[in-house]
Design a protein around this nucleic acid. Sequence first.
DNA 1: CGTTTTGTAACCATTAAAGTTACAGGTGGT
DNA 2: ACCACCTGTAACTTTAATGGTTACAAAACG
Lengths: 136, 136
Amino acid sequence: MINTRFSVAVHILSLLASEPERRLSSSYMAASVNTNPVVIRRISGMLKQAGLLQTKPGVSGALITRAPEDITLLDIYRAVQQEDLLFSTHSSPSPDCPVGRNIQSTLDESFKRAQNAMEAELQKQSLADVTAHLFV
Amino acid sequence: MINTRFSVAVHILSLLASEPERRLSSSYMAASVNTNPVVIRRISGMLKQAGLLQTKPGVSGALITRAPEDITLLDIYRAVQQEDLLFSTHSSPSPDCPVGRNIQSTLDESFKRAQNAMEAELQKQSLADVTAHLFV
DNA sequence: CGTTTTGTAACCATTAAAGTTACAGGTGGT
DNA sequence: ACCACCTGTAACTTTAATGGTTACAAAACG
């Protein structure tokens, strides 16, 4: 199961997108997410590195940097996921067995296709789609 | 990152598919996978429950129950994955905030789409596709 | 009848994640 | 200039999942 960083990251950016003019502090967002401000700052740091939001040390709050229409869920997913492989393969299968010898490269291809399909779907969805759904 | 059970499960079934007449013991398969026989038996148990292989207590070895063409990677994935949700969402966001109030149901939909895309791709690939790739 | 194997339970080690405390360094208001 | 507040980050704790391992009962086969 993929960790909740992705989920929290979308939450953070949804908050910022809903009030693009206001700098929202980590404490404020932590209250909405229902977690510790440090967790927010940690994830905000990843989103900042990905260029999705701006912050300044000392100055309260974060601002979104792009229009929600121009941020895909894949952008957010990639920002908070350090591992780029979705599936793990068992390590060091036996090289003395035709199956063991080739299973890794074979699975790498199969798994990559599945991951690509998932990421393609994330790319189709924008932050604007999410926020539109939030405020019905 | 998705655990290696899936990867090991495909390995097991590839072995059984490559010698459909021979009963392969957990020790034999453990040597090819390079792990402990108990790990093999544990995962074999899940594959058995899913109807993908047969075993009998006391009788050495497992047999594949279906033609590799009729087993999809999704069948195998589902057999070894107890959680049916790929993405987690953070729990108990604030009900006092319009974002917090609706984020879960919104994300559930977005995440389900992504998961469906991934699973659809797994369904397109059969065990036969995998074994064909193994023995080039 | 004894060796072997499966099926499980139980336990350990490792790892990742999330929450938390603490604090240095920067800002802005007063 | 000072002070209260915020960010960024390191460090620590807790929890849960995973994979490996030991142990053993039940079953089967020669």
